[in-house]
Design a protein around this nucleic acid. Sequence first.
DNA 1: CGCCGGATTTAA
DNA 2: TAAATCCGGCGA
Length: 194
Amino acid sequence: MPLKRILAGPVEDAARGLLGCELVREDVVLRIVEVEAYAGPEDTASHARHGRTARNAPMWGAPGRAYLYFCYGMHWMLNVVTGPEGVASAVLIRGAEVLAGMDTVLARRRAAKPSAQICAGPGKVAQALGLARESDGLDLLRAEGLHLRPGLTPGAILSGPRVGIGFAVEPDRLRSWRFALAGSPAVSRPRIAP
DNA sequence: CGCCGGATTTAA
DNA sequence: TAAATCCGGCGA
């Protein structure tokens, strides 16, 4: 099944389908190992919970676009928009392994040496790719600029509650919409129970 | 290894 | 005023 079709489906399936896929920008190639699913206005943890705003507008767009937002006054977060056009949902990229371009990643992350956790966290992933506001809304399925492509077929997948959404109400708050490749060293904290 | 506070801008 | 976070410092 083509990636575009998976992204056009339910956000939970799209999230699982993104595990193992690759993000490419210039010389940097990352393998996605951890994601979180965020649905539309009905999901009280989602940026779409108050309806359409200037910030979350890309969430209503076509599947496969980027939704980037600024968080905690200093971090950019990369999401892949999912669902049909007009339906607001997106998948937050939370963790990745560096397949190529480690020197560039080290420079952007201001790290002295490689480590398994260099892209373990959503802020780290966007920073490693050099992403900010100007990449908001990009079509990731076009092979120019930032590109998303199929990769490794996932083995075992772990799931658990989403991180940093204590403000959401149940059942959204406890929903297991965080997914990660079992055994990957690039999964962010807190760890998902096996 | 786990907990805690500060950084720093924006959206609602 | 709190946020879909990160990092360094401190104590066990």
